[in-house]
Amino acid sequence: MQHGGNKPKEQYVHSVFQSIAGKYDVMNDTLSFRRHKAWRKFTMKKMNVQPGQTALDVCCGTCDWTLALAEASETGHIEGLDFSSNMLEVGQRKVEKLGRKQQITLIQGNAMSLPYEDNSFDYVTIGFGLRNVPDIKQVLNEMKRVVKPGGKVVCLELSKPTWQPFKGLYYFYFRNMLPFIAKLLAKRYEQYKWLPDSLMMFPGRAELEQIFKETGLQNVTSFALTGGIAALHIGTKESQHV
């Protein structure tokens, strides 16, 4: 359930992503130390998407993961959902450029209330979006609702490093360097300050794994990536027994 206090967060985050859409891909490189493409490749290997399978990419942003899902599926329909029209415009241009317009549908929508029927997709993914939603459990419940029985809910997200001294250096970077890099790249100092703040509030890998389990997902696994600065979580929706 969304609390009243979440509304300002939702509006603020929306304004952040509307304003930085054009620089989002450059910033992903900066945020991940240029590792986000390798993380996505690792994730796709773990997912093992088969030709013809369908997927929903929640908080799809500029659609890099949406396009990777479409490529792996070859023929299956892929939906991308985001609340930012500016991000979707950037994504749509990529989709058209890569000739995936027939396979991918992008829609503006809210991750807290997905506009899909129950049991609709083989996979439901969220990449670098879960820490920006007003209510993590609500979004995971929605993702679980729309995935098919036996299907997978997959989250790739920045996380909290646990290995010292890397942990200390990483947080120093986030708190002190990132806003200034952001100012140079996007002239959006205040908006990018949101990113380290959101990371501090976001659950660590073990905590998020527990939230996945509390949502009712089965066989939950998680992987620390690049010293724990990112994490992959995968859970399976329980198959319906006849």
Rank of each mutant, 00 (worst) to 15 (best):
G4L: 11
G5W: 15
N6A: 10
P8V: 07
Q11T: 07
Y12S: 02
Y12C: 01
A21C: 09
G22E: 15
K23P: 02
V26Q: 05
D29W: 11
D29Y: 14
S32F: 13
F33S: 12
K37A: 10
K37L: 13
W39V: 03
R40L: 04
M47G: 02
N48P: 02
Q50L: 09
Q50H: 02
G52A: 06
G52M: 06
A55E: 02
D57P: 06
V58F: 04
C60H: 10
T62E: 09
D64V: 07
W65A: 01
W65K: 00
T66Y: 02
A68K: 03
A68L: 02
A68E: 07
A72F: 03
T75I: 12
T75V: 10
G76C: 12
I78Y: 04
I78M: 07
L81I: 15
D82Y: 09
F83I: 06
S85I: 10
L88Q: 12
L88H: 12
G91S: 14
R93W: 03
R93H: 13
E96S: 10
R100H: 15
I104Q: 06
L106C: 08
L106W: 11
N110P: 09
S113L: 13
N119L: 02
N119H: 10
D122H: 13
D122A: 03
V124E: 07
T125H: 05
G129F: 04
L130Q: 00
R131K: 13
N132G: 00
N132M: 00
V133R: 02
E142I: 06
E142T: 03
K144S: 12
R145S: 01
V146F: 09
G150K: 03
L156H: 08
L158P: 00
S159C: 05
K160Y: 01
W163M: 07
W163K: 11
Q164A: 13
F166K: 08
L169S: 05
F172W: 14
F174I: 04
L178V: 08
P179S: 13
A182P: 12
A186M: 06
Y189I: 03
S198W: 03
L199M: 07
P203T: 00
G204Q: 00
R205I: 09
E207H: 03
Q210G: 05
F212R: 08
E214F: 03
Q218C: 14
V220C: 13
T221M: 13
T221Y: 11
L225A: 06
T226P: 05
I229H: 01
A231T: 11
L232A: 05
L232H: 09
H233Y: 06
G235F: 10
Q240V: 15
H241A: 13
